[in-house]
Amino acid sequence: MNNSEDTQQSNIITKKDLRRANRRWLMSVCTFNYQSQQGASVVYALSPSLRKIYKDDEDYVEALNNHFQYFNTQPWLASIILGAVLAMEEKQGKEVQRAIQDFKIGIMGPLAGIGDSLLMVLIPTIFGSIAAYMAKEGNPIGIILWFIIILIIFFFRMRCFEFGYKQGMKVITEYGQKLTYITEAASVLGLTVIGALIPSVINLKVLAKFKFGDVTMEIQPLIDQILPSLIPVLITFIVYKLLGYRRMSVTKIIFLVIIFAMILARFGILA
């Protein structure tokens, strides 16, 4: 058995195993906890494949314990890392446990950066705002459009393990440079859209009026002459500054905005 190890090991993990691991990785954030974050989901996804690689119980338990450690990244792109991990486990076996954990930790950050900005922020911002506008007028077309995008992404997501397995580490090192350009370009697209969101999404009008004896003067038209959407810009700027303080959580800020809004509404200043 030992002498034929090299030739046999090259196809322990089949396409079917990779698809299965990909499906099981849907567990991703479900086991999220403050100790190992997504670690247990990695175990859940990889365990059937690891069992095939490590016939010996002791080796298997060692590999499982390795994967029970801390892991956290954008779950869709994580599939690529985990596919590559399976390739490493299969080719080099238990000698590289330490290296595998280092690889996972090292690649986690950059992938989370790309994944969060592209998949979790940019796409939901653009398609979410389009869908929301249409929905507010009772039109579901925007939602359907977004759903199509979601399905396309899902199709690719379900193949990421195979991709990662085939490319191993090559993908991240070789395409690394291009990935940074894509992230940069995505930021440009994102910021352009966000710039447009302030005037279109935040609807605020000043109700308060100046009174000079008999003459009343509306404030809103004055503001419009200075800068359309001045009030939304100011509010966004204040919240942006508040978010910079360590002690300000998002939840606290949302509560503050609600309280602030109630005070303004009480005195009829804004609507």
Binding site: D116, S117, V121, T125, S187, G190, L191, I194, L197, I198, V201, I202, N203, L204, P232, I235, T236, F237, V239, Y240, L242, L243, G244, V250, I253, I254, V257, I258, F260, A261, M262, I263, L264, A265, R266, L270, A271
Partner: peptide, 22 residues
């Protein structure tokens, strides 16, 4: 009416978060 106003203001929080992130 305060809650309605808050509903109009709260998008600013999300946008500010996006700006922090970008």
């Amino acid at each position: 009416s305060g809650l309605t106003l808050a509903g109009n203001m709260l998008p600013a929080v999300g946008i500010a978060m996006l700006l922090r992130f970008m």
